[in-house]
Every structure is written in structure tokens, then in C-alpha cells.
Design a protein around this nucleic acid. Structure first.
Length: 485
RNA sequence: GCAGUCAUAGUAUAGCCUGGUUAGUAUUCGGGGUUUCCAACCCUGUGACGCGGGUUCGAAUCCCGCUGACUGCACCA
């Protein structure tokens, strides 16, 4: 299905919609999840916890969204994350100062230079606006981080631009108190904030967005010494290095040198197994190895997990080998010790990061799951039952003859165990269609026969087939059918 | 941030050019009836001109500003 149809579904069925929409000054890049969206998000995260966090015995934390200035001085975000910009006094057009100077005067000034250096060069070389020949105002820093002022003194702090910094700064305590052993994964789900210049396409480029990040701390000397590699060595990966996508197992990828070591391959394998279970069409996915220029400023080796959608390839996960960039920066700035013991060896761990964009993942799941069933004139969200916002609809065929009461009784029986939706009103076909659209995999219908033999029909969303079961079997059937894989 | 296009019920749209009755239609949604296993039908009801200003006797309609959406460019640690 395409972006337009997903958007329509999202608005009509409250998966997600614009934030503050009743006010005229609502800003771009902020979206809310409605009840259906929240339900899918929660289930997606539960799957993530099962397939990554618990499977690999990672530790999950929940850190602050507002973090002190020092954190971002150490992380490099205050330097690298800010672009020097100049604005034309006459027409208001804004330029990247370093890029414009390099283009016009052919002088390279590093983007982290003092602002005066840019002003000086612009005066010296007499650089004017390329559009209207107007003069430039003095250079300013545009930082992608949202600054906040703490307390009456307005102390400088920032909304985190990525969740992982709390993982790094919490690492020493967690390693000690949780009896840590390398390799150790620490995970976190939460919001991050980036003041994007041009937010766009609803959930795909947000100013406030969810990340599920995992940082795996490891001994850099033991990247091929990983017993659990055998668990995923036969999992197939789709890897794009230059132009074409190559399909190979994790084992082959390491042997051929496509992936530098077993450690990285292991986590790409886990990630593949996870996404397969979300129902995303993996034939449309790839791990793209990033070139030198594309990589983040902290990354040694980087693979992006991307999925093809109707609006192009979307980056869902960034996998970066960050080496000891973060821990050594925080150690230096904070003067705390970040080295740990790995058996008899004292090491400053290296970090491999799996940084997942949740909002984009949810969009992709919706796009890949939504289909139009022309034969039966319906839109069906064929989402995996364990991710469905509603597991089961509970319907009365008719309201009279005591069927309504009987239906309510069944609803009460299962409502705390499954996400259930009770519906008595209108034609039965319409109620089935409504459930199809929000992806409810099952519908239970109470009819006249129910009163005679205590059986109901269960209708399946995908093929519309129905079979009759006893009410006493309902719970075990639904539990089995909606269970996580 | 730049350029172009656009903004009317939950959703999709008509009306705007050429200002003037109660803003039309489809669908959705609520209540009632009838039928009952796949969007049937009948009755009934709720629901909209993005925000702010200007022109005018009068603005959904014309003008200006803002905000947002879409597309392209730039950006995307």
C-alpha cells in the first residue's frame, strides 16, 4: 500500500495524527499516537524486548530526557551537531557559512571554528548573498539540539538528541551493580529530540521521536571470540556494499570479510530475525554499508538497515561500531573511570550500537501490512496477530433474543486477557470490515446456536473463514493464536 | 531553510475565477426500525470554511501575514 492510504488509515482510525491540531500555531514535526497506534507501538516494543533485550540478556534502563551540558560537550554534539549559519540581511536567505566560504572564496574553515573567523573571512573576501547581493548578518550557530533552561537561574541543558548518552554515562554504575560481564548490552526506549530544519512525512522525520537503542559493550580484542555466534550463523542477511544486494548467511559474511567480525555479524543477525517477525517484507530490506563520508562522526563501521517503501528506502536502524569514542570522551570530561575488568584484563570497552527508529518502523509495518481486498471490497491490515491493536472483536449477530447479554458475558470473560472490542451495532458485515481495517485478526460472533450448545463462530481476518468452537475453548485458542512467536 | 502547489465535517470532495438565501454531495459516526454471517434498506440526528488581520453594507470566495500539508532542492550527527 502507499503513503496516502496509510495516512488515511492513520487519521481515520487514530493510529497517529498531528499534534496540537486545533491551534493555528501548531508546529511541524510533532505527531501523536492515538489508541490504536499506542497499542501497536507497545506490542512492537514487547517483541523488541523479547527478541533482542531478553534473548541476549541485556539490561534495560530508562534515562532522563533532559541532560546536562557536559554530557553533550563530551559526546561532541555541542561541537559537531551545530552548523555555522549566516543570514542575508536583505532577503533573509540562510546559508551554511563554511560551505559558502568554501564555494566562493575557496577557503576551508572547519565548521567548529569560532564564529568570528567566519565573519572575518566574509568581510575579507567581500562575500555577499548569492541571490540578492545583500550583506550578511554575523554568523550564528544553529544547533539541532533543543536547549532548555533549568530552574530560576536558567542553567543550560539540552533535550537529548539520541537516547544512548544515558547508557554511556550510566555504564560504570550498571556494570558494577548488575554484575556486568563483557560483552554487555544495555538497552533503552524513549524519546529523543532534534530541531530538524525540514520535518516531513508524518512519522518519518519528526522533531520529537522514539528510539529503541542498544549499546553493546565489548572487549575490542575479542570480536571474533563469541560462542553464541553459532545461534545465528545460518541466518541470512541481505547486504548491499556497492550497487547490488548480496544474500548470504552471517557465517559467510564474516568469512568473506563483508562484515568485519563475528560480533557485528551476530547483532545484524539478531536484528534480521527480529524484523522478520514484525511482518515487514524482508525481500524489500537491506543492510547498507556506509561509506566514509556518510558515516556519523563517531562511527568506525556503519550499516544502515533500510526498507523499501512506496516513498523510497527508509532507514529504520543505524548500526554503528562506535569504538571507545563515547566512553573515552566521557572518561576524559568527567574524570571518572570507565575501564572494567574482562577476566584478568583491564579494558576500556568498545561499543556497537543498534539504534532503532520506532516511528519509522511502525510506519513501515503499517505500509507493508495494509492491503486492499478488491474482491470483498475491504481494506485489510494484515498485521501479525501479536502486533494487532485489537486482538479480537466480540460481536452479537443480533441484539435481541438474549444474544446481546450472552455476548457481553463472553466479552467480560476475555477482556482482561486480550485486547478485545465489543460491538453490537449495525450490520454484521460492516462490523467485520471495521475490524479488518484496524487489523483485528479474529472476530467472535454470538448467534442463535450459541444459546443451544454454547458455541460461537471465530472469523479469521485474512481469509474471512469461520469455524465454530465451544466458549470454553476460546481462551486457549486466542492465547495460542495471538502469542508472540 | 528555498521554490512550486495546496488548505472546507472523522475521511474524500463541490462551491472560490465572477463576494450576497439555511455551504452541497459521498462516506463515516450516534439513536431508532427491519433483516441477519460479510460495507443491504428505511427513519432520524451530530458534524466543516486552518489561524490572525485587511478591503467591503456584506468574505469560504478578493488582499496581506502566520501556520500546516504535499513535491523538488538543501539538510538528515
Amino acid at each position: 500500500m502507499n503513503y496516502e492510504s496509510v495516512m488515511k488509515l492513520a487519521l481515520e482510525r487514530a493510529f497517529y495524527f498531528p499534534s496540537c491540531e486545533v491551534y493555528g500555531d501548531a508546529q511541524a514535526g510533532f505527531w501523536e499516537y492515538g489508541p490504536t497506534g499506542v497499542s501497536v507501538k507497545n506490542k512492537f516494543l514487547e517483541l523488541w524486548r523479547r527478541e533482542l533485550v531478553r534473548r541476549d540478556r541485556m539490561l534495560e534502563i530508562d534515562g532522563s530526557q533532559i541532560m546536562s551540558k557536559s554530557v553533550f560537550e563530551a559526546s561532541g554534539h555541542l561541537g559537531n551537531f551545530a552548523d555555522p549559519i549566516i543570514k542575508c540581511k536583505k532577503c533573509g536567505l540562510t546559508f551554511r557559512a563554511d560551505k559558502l566560504i568554501s564555494e566562493i572564496a575557496n577557503v576551508e574553515i572547519p565548521e567548529s571554528a569560532d564564529l568570528e573567523d567566519f565573519d572575518k573571512m566574509i568581510q575579507e573576501k567581500n562575500i555577499v548573498c548569492t541571490k540578492c547581493k545583500g550583506e550578511f548578518d554575523s554568523a550564528k550557530k544553529f544547533n539541532m539540539m533543543f536547549r532548555v533552561g533549568i530552574g530560576p537561574e536558567d542553567v543550560e541543558a539540552y533535550l537529548r538528541p539520541e537516547t544512548c548518552q544515558s547508557i554511556f554515562v550510566d555504564f560504570p554504575r550498571l556494570f558494577k551493580t548488575m554484575r556486568g560481564k563483557l560483552p554487555l548490552g544495555i538497552a533503552q526506549v524513549g524519546k529523543s529530540f532534534r530541531n530538524e530544519i525540514a520535518p516531513r512525512q508524518s512519522l518519518l522525520r519528526l522533531r520529537e521521536f522514539y528510539q529503541a537503542e542498544i549499546e553493546v559493550f565489548c572487549n575490542p580484542g575479542k570480536l571474533n571470540d563469541l560462542e553464541k555466534f553459532s545461534e545465528i550463523e545460518n541466518t541470512t542477511l541481505r547486504i548491499q556494499i556497492s550497487d547490488d544486494i548480496q544474500v548470504m548467511t552471517c557465517k559467510e559474511a564474516v568469512e568473506k570479510g563483508v562484515i568485519p567480525n563475528k560480533f557485528v555479524a551476530y547483532y545484524l543477525g539478531l536484528l534480521t530475525e527480529f524484523y522478520e517477525k514484525t511482518g515487514i517484507d524482508m525481500e524489500k530490506s537491506r543492510f547498507r554499508k556506509l561509506g566514509e563520508k556518510e558515516k556519523a562522526f563517531y562511527a568506525d563501521v556503519a550499516f544502515d538497515f533500510e526498507v523499501n517503501t512506496t516513498i523510497g528506502w527508509l532507514e529504520l536502524v543505524a548500526c554503528n561500531y562506535r569504538s571507545d569514542y563515547d566512553l573515552s570522551s566521557h572518561a576524559k570530561k568527567s574524570k571518572e573511570k570507565f575501564e572494567v575488568m574482562d577476566n584478568d584484563e583491564k579494558v576500556l570497552p568498545h561499543v556497537f550500537e543498534i539504534s532503532m527508529g520506532i516511528d519509522r518502523s511502525l510506519y513501515t509495518i503499517l505500509e507493508h501490512s495494509l492491503r486492499e481486498d478488491k474482491e470483498n471490497e475491504r481494506m485489510v491490515l494484515s498485521i501479525k496477530p501479536y502486533l494487532a491493536p485489537t486482538h479480537v472483536g466480540v460481536l452479537s449477530l443480533v441484539k435481541k433474543d438474549g444474544l446481546l447479554e450472552k455476548t457481553d458475558e463472553i466479552y467480560r470473560l476475555i477482556r482482561t486477557k486480550f485486547d478485545s472490542f465489543l460491538d453490537h451495532s449495525g450490520a454484521i458485515g460492516r462490523r467485520y470490515r471495521r475490524l479488518d481495517e484496524i487489523g483485528a485478526p479474529f472476530a467472535i460472533t454470538v448467534d442463535h446456536q450459541t444459546k443451544e450448545d454454547n458455541t460461537v463462530t471465530i472469523r479469521r481476518r485474512d481469509d474471512m473463514a469461520q469455524n465454530r468452537v465451544n466458549i470454553s475453548e476460546l481462551e486457549s485458542i486466542l492465547a495460542k493464536e495471538t502469542a508472540y512467536p
